[in-house]
Write a protein that binds this DNA or RNA. Structure first.
Lengths: 343, 343
DNA sequence: TGGGAGTATGAATCTCCGG
DNA sequence: GCCGGAGATTCATACTCCC
């Protein structure tokens, strides 16, 4: 199915591939005799090799269909996630983060032989090291009480009403992912109208959340019973309103306003003296929007960095106008005023 | 050095290999200060193949020197941990858990292009699938206020007085690990008297904590300056008493902040003597957060009830620390202090 | 001595657009 | 594809300094 998709056609991929189950089973033969795996390196190599080959095949196709600015998410546990990560890197993907889904309510360890396996790992990767990927930084920050979103996410398992069940009342799919997890994934790296691909759709959480958030989706699923349920599930979703699904705009996405415009329209007339917050330097605004401070001359940013001897400087927040009475007003507030009026 | 060790001779291995960070250029904070990056020669590899070959070589030797019932811990980040995990599996190790070190105070992401990289990953593996490994289940449970220890650990970075510094006052080693991390690792899978190997000793945290907890250790370090400092550091450690380092069986109770956390972070260090308000009993704090008072051993609550021959006891308000000068401070006030600071 | 303000720093794969 | 310039971007903790 993946091979039928055109190259560079999807904005984001979420993949929840099968775990390496044959490896778990390889400990015992059908007659329950124990396989001496330690001395049987060839056999165990072929097990991993089969999983690696499978992984490599679908990941290669994913890379082909991914846009150059697109990103991929892959989820796994310690049985398979190291194989996934290694293959991602070997295929040229560029890992951006590994993200930990900390389960609020994991299954306990019944035998008391290990730590409670209370998390799964997601790998987030760009198509390559030069890719300019989308990351909705402000949206993620807003979601987290206005501090940067960390790489560890605390989210409950999918239970209760959200869990799809068959007619017999039993869970339809063994590893249905919670919608909260997919919502954060999709909000972090896509925009409304983007196309999201899930090559292992399963119970259809990716499709449901994509539709809810106004993203397009492509889902691939081999098992008919899952595919049918996922399709029904996605179609039953009512998409949210446009304003509800928009991502918080970053400053970079706001329209550019050259400083010269403020000079031209008289908000900061030529000849105005600018100073920094501590009033250490004083610069004069030129009619062309340039700044002069001693021998330093150029844009508000360039002069700011030169006087401070700093590698860079955002002149909008560095320079201030001294108002009558002596109070300081930062340049950025003039810009905000103009941008607000333009709406 | 590893090749000189006899086979099947160590009970546990902790390995903190170079991460292969692949940093390019420099990074400035928003305040224009320069981030002190890990650019040391020992972290430079030409490509993944070179890193994999290096990894395979030292891991093979580790497997040879590890006892059949021994386990290995390997720590890494997304740059290298997938390579580590894959090589571990390919060499026949049997992964028991991947454990997440959630950093209380990670470095932020300054450019807003990714999630804050707020964790590192430890892989815990047995020598093979048939190994009968040691896991001190009750000790880990005690440390976590009598609920199973999960696979995500919340521990602060190594800063302040714990951080080794050179004569110039700068950090001696770029990646010194916190003692609280090693303490949990060592308590989870070894017994007093066991031999612990660290093939990348660095600043010597493994050696220091092993000695403190009454375990033997072997450390290997290539850089003379690190090796010298690590040796001095380990030798300056006073081992805890036998009863403080023994691993305990226990059960019961569950406040929100485990007493073990106060032990780990040094507010109530192992070996501390606790007493009740009337100073009728005296109990010693174990490194796993258990308490010993005569033959009574277990959580602060259990020991409190046993010595009083009472059906139950809230250890938080029963036990006190005797301060220099003789005043008593109730345990609950330490908990309150931590909880208040966490707000 | 205590508190407030300011500064330093931690395993970091850390920009984007237009000419 | 290269280059120059605009301008966006930080959290928790510990320590220093000064009043």
């Amino acid at each position: 199915m993946l091979r039928q998709l055109p190259p560079a056609s999807v904005h984001a991929i979420f993949a929840d591939p099968p775990y390496n189950l044959q490896l778990k089973g390889s400990l015992h033969r059908p007659d329950n005799s124990l396989v001496d795996a330690v001395d049987d390196e060839w056999d165990r190599f072929t097990d991993f090799a089969a999983y690696d080959a499978f992984t490599r095949e679908w990941l290669s196709e994913c890379r082909r269909v991914l846009r150059r600015d697109g990103t991929i998410w892959v989820i796994g546990a310690y049985h398979n996630v190291f194989r996934l990560g290694t293959q991602l890197q070997d295929l040229g993907f560029w890992v951006l983060n590994d993200v930990i889904w900390r389960k609020a309510n994991p299954m306990p360890n019944f035998r008391g032989r290990r730590f409670t396996n209370a998390h799964e790992t997601l790998i987030w990767a760009a198509r390559g090291p030069e890719s300019r990927h989308r990351f909705n930084y402000q949206a993620m920050k807003s979601l987290n009480d206005d501090v940067q979103m960390r790489s560890d996410w605390y989210i409950p398992l999918c239970t209760g009403h959200e869990r799809l069940r068959g007619e017999d009342g039993r869970k339809l799919h063994p590893t249905q992912k919670p919608e909260a997890l997919l919502q954060r994934v999709i909000l972090s790296c896509t925009a409304p109208g983007d196309v999201i691909l899930d090559p292992f759709l399963g119970s259809g959480t990716t499709a449901a959340v994509a539709r809810k958030l106004g993203r397009h989706f492509i889902g691939i699923e081999r098992e008919t019973v899952y595919a049918t349920a996922a399709h029904q599930r996605a179609m039953s979703i009512t998409p949210l309103s446009e304003e509800a699904v928009a991502v918080a705009p970053s400053k970079k996405e706001q329209p550019r306003l050259p400083f010269g415009t403020l000079v031209e329209n008289g908000m900061v007339p030529p000849g105005t003296a600018l100073t920094d917050r501590q009033r250490r330097w004083r610069a004069i605004v030129g009619a062309d929007g340039s700044l002069t401070c001693g021998r330093a001359r150029g844009s508000i940013h360039k002069v700011g960095s030169e006087v401070q001897e700093a590698p860079s400087c955002n002149g909008w927040v560095f320079w201030h106008v001294e108002l009558p009475g002596g109070a300081l007003r930062v340049l950025d507030s003039y810009r905000a005023e103009v941008l607000a009026a333009a709406k």
